[in-house]
């Protein structure tokens, strides 16, 4: 039914591909060059795959620590979101038509979607410091709290589409509410859980602002983005080292993207279009 794309379409697409790949290509070839080779030509392929730059970044004090911190923050926050958000969304979705409390709670939880981070960042740092939370577990808790609004919005819409008969029969059989939720409802929410995990996981992994505010004073608490940011401002001369560090920071996401591209993009679209 549709026309075949013309040669111009392909030319346009290829130009775009070059624009997208070129910076990455430069980063990769530069990271593999030893310092002596840098002065020759920026665009030339490295004469050999020199791994010294990567080794130097990895051996730098604080790098591995920052990787551990980032993994910890991402995993703990994601688990927290998945424990807390579908639970409250289930209670809201099933009761908001009958009880006012749940209806108002729903709108109350949605307020946050409209509020940009800037307005709460300064008082938030104060609150965190009062609770002694300017550390890695502390920002994980803040991430969970920050993910509530969008998560509730997405989950409530999804749960409205899940028929209530299954759980009703479980309640008839005398099953407890938590048991019913965990055994019957939660497994049915898998598609939305995947969406939320992908969205929030990428956010927590890539985030720079909150770590900058909360963790920048103590290098032991650095996340990967914070480590790279500080590493960059200390290393000005040897930029093959900088590129090696930046590539290492992107590596886990690149690998995930190569293997799970469909799922990741599907999840992001799902979250963004409905959100």
């Amino acid at each position: 039914m549709k026309k075949k794309p013309s040669i111009f379409t392909y030319l346009f697409l290829i130009c775009g591909c070059v624009l997208i790949i070129f910076p990455m290509y430069l980063a990769v070839i530069t990271a593999f060059k030893p310092t002596e080779e840098l002065t020759k030509s920026i665009f030339a392929f490295p004469s050999s795959f020199y791994l010294g730059n990567f080794m130097e970044v990895i051996e730098k004090s604080g790098f591995l620590n920052s990787v551990i911190n980032t993994v910890f923050v991402t995993v703990v926050s994601c688990v927290g979101v998945i424990l807390v958000v579908p639970l409250v969304s289930y209670a809201i979705a099933r009761n908001m038509d009958k009880k006012r409390y749940y209806k108002y709670l729903y709108y109350f939880l949605l307020i946050g979607i409209f509020v940009p981070f800037q307005v709460k960042m300064m008082p938030l740092v104060q609150v965190m410091s009062n609770f002694n939370m300017l550390n890695v577990p502390g920002i994980a808790v803040v991430y969970i709290a920050s993910a509530v609004c969008e998560g509730v919005f997405l989950y409530v819409a999804f749960i409205h589409g899940v028929p209530g008969e299954l759980e009703e029969s479980a309640y008839m059989d005398g099953a407890g509410t938590l048991f019913t939720y965990w055994k019957i409802i939660f497994p049915l929410l898998k598609p939305m859980t995947a969406t939320v995990l992908i969205m929030d996981g990428l956010w927590f992994w890539n985030d720079f602002f909150l770590p900058l505010l909360a963790l920048n004073k103590t290098p032991d608490n650095y996340t990967l983005t914070l480590f790279i940011y500080n590493f960059k401002s200390q290393t000005t001369v040897n930029y093959s080292l900088i590129f090696a560090g930046l590539l290492l920071a992107m590596l886990p996401i690149m690998v995930l993207y190569v293997f799970l591209q469909k799922q990741i993009m599907g999840g992001l679209v799902n979250g963004a279009v409905k959100g």
């Binding site: 890539n206 985030d207 940011y229 920071a249 993207y257 990741i264």
Partner: peptide
């Protein structure tokens, strides 16, 4: 680019 961090 959709999956990359802005800072990096």
């Amino acid at each position: 680019p959709a999956v990359l961090g802005m800072l990096v």
